[in-house]
Write a protein that binds this DNA or RNA. Structure first.
Lengths: 150, 150
DNA sequence: GGTTGACTTAAAGTGCACTCGAAGGTGTTT
DNA sequence: AAACACCTTCGAGTGCACTTTAAGTCAACC
């Protein structure tokens, strides 16, 4: 967290942010990050770049795709006037990620029940004859159909 | 949820489970599902198959890959003796999915803060000069570094 | 008797995000 | 002087899970 003026060459930078040098150059090609060059044309990065890549990785981590990320970068480059649009883009990403989480949790619930059911089978607290489907019924609240479709 | 003895041909079945006919045949090739055939060699499926595909989709929904799914199917075919192993496989899937959710939520938190920060910029309750990085500091609990690496 | 929907195998195509290699170069370190 | 890390372009390869096409056949429905 210490603010330094160090220059990081691509190899060290890659280790710092957890990406490969290939990927860093690829992202640069794609316009997601930029690097500066020393007098020999060798890329270098700074602490500010670490932050930026960190943020990119958070966005990617929510499932945002490179295309959206590029759009974000373009807006950012266009100045403060695009703040509302950037906000909207992030809001959409947030909503998407929340929907993903909700879906994941729904699937997870079934998985958990199945594990419980196996436990019942293993220690015989559930009859050998009881099917998982029947067992599941007791957890089915109204409105939640088998696949979670609306 | 009504139990019928209906036979569904692939087209109807595809609509019922939300997969394409291509995908159903592909899954069959991969050994994930099986179908029966009528006297003309035409595939048909039953309500039991709907349940099975439903369950498969729950597993897939937690991020399980076809390979793992295949392993599960193989174990299932091998009978009750494999129940502990199947349980373990599902437990791993569950743990993975929970880790995914936790990670997603971590990234989401940063995203939310960034949105709040934009809101501050828009209504000027945050100084024009304050960087997101500085703003973020106030939410950083100890142990949570920038990228969530351990 | 034409449309629809099913069947087969096998191969190619798609989309995404990398990931790698070739081939030839520069500069710094041991 | 060798080893190492970096540079370039650019095209090919990878992995996953489909998705589509081709080419030909068959049977039911209107």
């Amino acid at each position: 967290m210490v603010e330094t003026n160090r220059r990081y060459r691509i190899g060290e930078f890659a280790r710092l942010v957890g990406l490969s040098t290939y990927t860093l150059r690829y992202y640069e090609d794609q316009g997601l990050i930029k690097s500066q060059r020393d007098e020999n044309g060798v890329r270098y990065y700074t602490d500010l770049d670490i932050r930026w890549v960190g943020f990119i990785l958070h966005l990617k981590g929510t499932g945002m795709r490179l295309n959206e990320l590029k759009r974000y970068v373009t807006l950012r480059a266009a100045g403060d006037a695009t703040i509302p649009e950037r906000r909207a883009l992030l809001q959409r990403a947030k909503d998407d990620a929340e929907a993903d989480i909700a879906e994941l949790q729904m699937h997870l619930a079934v998985l958990s029940h199945k594990i419980d059911w196996y436990d019942g089978k293993i220690d015989h607290t559930i009859a050998d004859s009881e099917s998982f489907h029947d067992y599941l019924q007791q957890f089915n609240q109204e409105g939640a159909d088998q696949f979670g479709k609306e």
